[in-house]
Each structure stands twice: as structure tokens, then as C-alpha cells.
Write a protein that binds this DNA or RNA. Structure first.
Lengths: 123, 123
DNA sequence: CGGGATCCCTCGAGATACTG
DNA sequence: CAGTATCTCGAGGGATCCCG
């Protein structure tokens, strides 16, 4: 080993694996970013902002984010029901890093797409 | 919309979705970090560094990373074969952001695990 | 309105065996 | 050594219906 001696082969003790298990799924990051843009949103508002997420997956993803303490869920006991979601401080603290990744993606996506096309032709 | 007017509902035009499609899988980020630590590695060296990845998934993941231009693959035409992998400049440029995420994970993993335990009890 | 419960199907990914 | 080829299984995730 040369540098930080991170043990990548220990799934439970590897920070990269932990973070990926949390936000590496299809929707969680997207939900966090939507909530960051709008501050407070109701279930259907998130649903519409993302567009192509199913009700089920939105529900499941929100529940996971809530369980981890990244999102706060506030229920108004009324009929019809009203539920509001917002980021917790912990959730907000993750946003800058996600945005940094997003910016990297924006900058290099063209290059990556060109690389991929060239790679296919090479085969 | 309040802030950057990102259109999250356009899968093809959403940087978050693009980056997740690239690195949101189970192994790609891990491979990038392993390569960053050791500079140049052969196939089986990566295999052993990660430990619990199958040959198949390592092969597939490396091929994708190569296609996107994040990893360079150098074949020595000899028997037995020898293949070396290293990060490209593009691959290297992604590392700091991944490390930032990894650090965030290290800092907050305890809190998240406690949140999750408390959430389960609440149910 | 905000979900929960159920059904169903695709595909990610592991195990194994084989090859230049 | 560095993969490829096949088979297989389980989970991720969509569609639909229902309920307080």
C-alpha cells in the first residue's frame, strides 16, 4: 500500500461502500437535490418535480432518507392528508458534495460521451 | 423554481443522473479509488485489493470505465498475458470529489447508523 | 392526498467452467 | 494470467388497486 491504507476489501468498514449504499441507488440523490431547491415540498410536488419516478419508489426512497436522518417528514393530521418533506441539517451538509459531483459531470459529460462512441467503433 | 432551475425530470439532460449512471453502480468508484492508491495495477491485483468482487464484475466494470475514458488499459502481448490498468487524467480529476464524499461518509456514518436504529424502534 | 399492499418482470450480479 | 460464456437467482423497481 502506498497512501492512506484504506481497506477496500472490508465492506463494512469502507466509507465508499457506505456512502454508495446510501445514495448510490436510483433516486435518493435526486430527491435530496429537489428538496434543496425548493426547501419544503409535499409528496406530490416531489413526484412532479422528478417526473418519472413511481409512487412506490418515491415512498420507499423517502422513507430510507428519513430513517437515515437526511430528510424530515412532517405530517398534518387532517383530511385530505398533508405531508411535508424538507432536508435536515445532515441532509443539507451533503448537498455541496453532490453539487460538486454534478458540476464535474456537467463539465465532462461531452468528453465521456465522445470517448464512449469512439470506444464502440474501435471494437 | 427558486434557484438553478435544474430540470430533474429530464433524464438525459440531468447531470446528477448522468453521474449516477456512471459511478452509481456497485464497483466503479471502488476501482477508481484502488487505482488511485496504487497508480498502476494488473487485473488480479485489483481483484485482490477489492476482495469480494467477482472476476466477471471486475471485467465488466473495468471495460465501462475504459470506454468512458476514466481508466487506461495497456496490454502486453506475451504469454501468460499481462494487462495493466491506470487512471487517465479524466479519471484522476474525479478522485477529489469521490474522496470528499468518502470523508463525509466517514464523518457522519455513526450518526446515520444511530438514526437508523432509532427509526426502527420508533416503528 | 399520501401513501400501503400486491403482483409481476426485468436485469444486476454471483458461481462455475472454459480458453488463448 | 486475464479474461469470456452460460446459467441461475434474488432484488429492484414498475403497474395497479385500495384505503384513511
Amino acid at each position: 500500500m502506498k497512501k492512506a491504507d484504506i481497506n477496500f476489501s472490508e465492506p463494512l468498514n469502507c466509507p465508499v461502500r457506505n456512502i454508495l449504499d446510501r445514495i448510490g441507488d436510483k433516486w435518493s440523490l435526486l430527491i435530496l437535490l429537489v428538496l434543496e431547491q425548493e426547501d419544503v415540498l409535499r409528496f406530490n410536488e416531489i413526484h412532479q418535480s422528478i417526473g418519472d419516478i413511481s409512487q412506490k419508489m418515491l415512498s420507499v426512497s423517502l422513507k430510507n432518507l428519513e430513517a437515515d436522518g437526511l430528510v424530515n417528514r412532517k405530517v398534518y393530521p387532517q383530511i385530505p392528508p398533508k405531508v411535508e418533506y424538507k432536508l435536515t441539517d445532515l441532509g443539507k451538509s451533503l448537498i455541496p458534495f453532490v453539487n460538486a459531483l454534478s458540476d464535474w459531470s456537467k463539465q465532462h459529460m461531452d468528453t465521456i460521451l465522445r470517448n464512449r462512441t469512439a470506444y464502440k467503433k474501435k471494437l
